[in-house]
């Protein structure tokens, strides 16, 4: 079974602190990391490929520095890593990104399954995975929380919805996006890190994948960001110190008033 896992480099949010006065984000430096939700996609792919003597290809689109997250994927156990990098891809929205990734996947050739994380923690759109499925015209099942069976070309999975866990049967090839509870991501091993060092990262540009220049980058993106605002999100809290019985009682009763306000709209 050949599984492709598209992954993304995102700003490291643990390196981010809140400004207590303005409530805005202070980014210390520009540390970047593998989107944490992609770890679950990689883990799921590695488990499946181990069961079926298959292989996992990690794919990302980004600047040359994104090679770092591919190294991480290799050290976890991916057997191949492809970096889609080209200035022409700059400014791509989710439409153009899903197009470029789908062209790269076509260029890779055959696959059985594409697994993505639920979404990236920076853009937070969750649109690229379903977009890839649309470009490639393959089955799409999102928010997968468990893979129950795979028999030949048929998979049975569970997906997490607002109502509960929905069981779905799907025919491969397919794209699934997975949620956190599907697996516990493994840590890279020393052997994995060594192998990652010895595995070259393949660099592809727009020409390699035969991308239509009109469909990539800012030019190929239907959406435009017209304005960015930093709203002041800090709120001024009414603070009660509950240091003894009386002050605690006062604080709790005031809170009950607030709760009552919610009930009575």
């Amino acid at each position: 079974m050949h599984i492709i896992v598209p992954i993304k480099q995102v700003p490291q949010s643990s390196a981010v602190k809140m400004d207590p006065v303005t409530g805005t984000m202070i980014r210390s430096g520009s540390a970047a990391t593998l989107n944490p939700l992609d770890l679950y996609a990689l883990e799921t792919a590695l488990c499946l490929s181990e069961r079926s003597a298959g292989s996992v290809t990690a794919l990302t689109m980004g600047p040359p520095s994104a090679a770092q997250i591919l190294k991480e994927a290799l050290s976890m156990g991916a057997s191949r890593a492809i970096l889609l990098t080209d200035r022409l891809f700059g400014g791509s929205d989710t439409y153009a990104t899903s197009y470029a990734l789908s062209k790269a996947i076509e260029h890779i050739g055959s696959f059985d399954l594409i697994i993505t994380g639920e979404r990236a923690t920076d853009g937070d759109t969750a649109q690229v995975g379903p977009g890839i499925a649309a470009w490639l015209d393959v089955a799409l099942v999102t928010y997968v929380s468990a893979i129950n069976t795979i028999v030949d070309r048929t998979m049975e999975v569970e997906r997490l919805t607002e109502e509960g866990y929905q069981a779905v049967r799907l025919t491969l090839p397919a794209l699934i996006s997975v949620v956190k509870e599907i697996a516990i991501p493994r840590l890279p091993t020393l052997r994995g890190k060594k192998r990652a060092m010895n595995t070259p990262i393949e660099e592809w540009d727009a020409r390699t994948i035969g991308a239509d220049i009109g469909k990539i980058g800012l030019k190929g993106s239907p959406t435009r960001v017209v304005k960015i605002e930093s709203p002041k999100v800090a709120r001024t809290a009414e603070v009660h110190i509950a240091s003894d019985e009386d002050s605690m009682k006062g604080a709790v009763d005031r809170l009950i008033d607030i709760i009552e306000e919610v009930y009575h709209g």
Partner: peptide
Amino acid sequence: AIADYAIIG
């Protein structure tokens, strides 16, 4: 920083 009401205790 983003609470409207806080009880410290």
